[in-house]
């Protein structure tokens, strides 16, 4: 495990995350939950106001299910920390940010210089997502 990368100003949430099964089966008062790639994020929706950290596992960087989980949580109004953990590579972080992830626990270290350049590279985006970016069609028509 390498350093946690955070794009939030609040303090990192330290309580260990429980699995979705454990959360559902009695630990619904836990404030940190870990979702595996195949877990249904919608199960958490009734509890979002008391969850402070959702960690989503990426077993392989090619497994993109976590991107949908993240958006679903953000679209449901979740504002706590959303952490991508596992096989998270520098070239994925821009997309992950757009889907609502604001913290990253990559298995291998991320080159900060490459990351900074990658996050600044695109001035425009075609579609709205779970971030504040204004899609190109809105820029075109005001």
């Amino acid at each position: 495990m390498t350093d946690l990368l955070r794009f939030r100003t609040d303090a990192a949430h330290e309580e260990p995350a429980v699995s979705l099964d454990a959360f559902v089966e009695g630990q619904a008062n836990a404030s940190a939950v870990r979702l595996e790639a195949g877990d249904d994020a919608r199960v958490l929706i009734p509890y979002l106001d008391r969850i402070m950290l959702v960690e989503i596992g990426f077993p392989k960087f090619r497994d993109g299910r976590g991107y949908s989980s993240a958006r679903i949580l953000r679209e449901a109004g979740y504002t706590g920390e959303l952490r991508a953990a596992g096989d998270v590579l520098v070239d994925q972080i821009d997309f992950m940010r757009r889907c609502g992830f604001d913290a990253f626990a990559p298995d291998a270290p991320i080159d900060e210089a490459v990351l900074t350049r990658s996050l600044e590279r695109y001035d425009y985006h075609y579609q709205p997502a779970a971030d504040a970016i204004v899609p190109v069609w809105k820029l075109r028509h005001g």
Binding site: G64, Y67, R71, F95, Y126, Q127
Partner: peptide, 14 residues
């Protein structure tokens, strides 16, 4: 074409 270019949710599809 535009809407699917670099779609953040759908760039690591099955």
């Amino acid at each position: 074409r535009q809407a699917t270019t670099f779609h953040p949710e759908f760039s690591y599809l099955p």
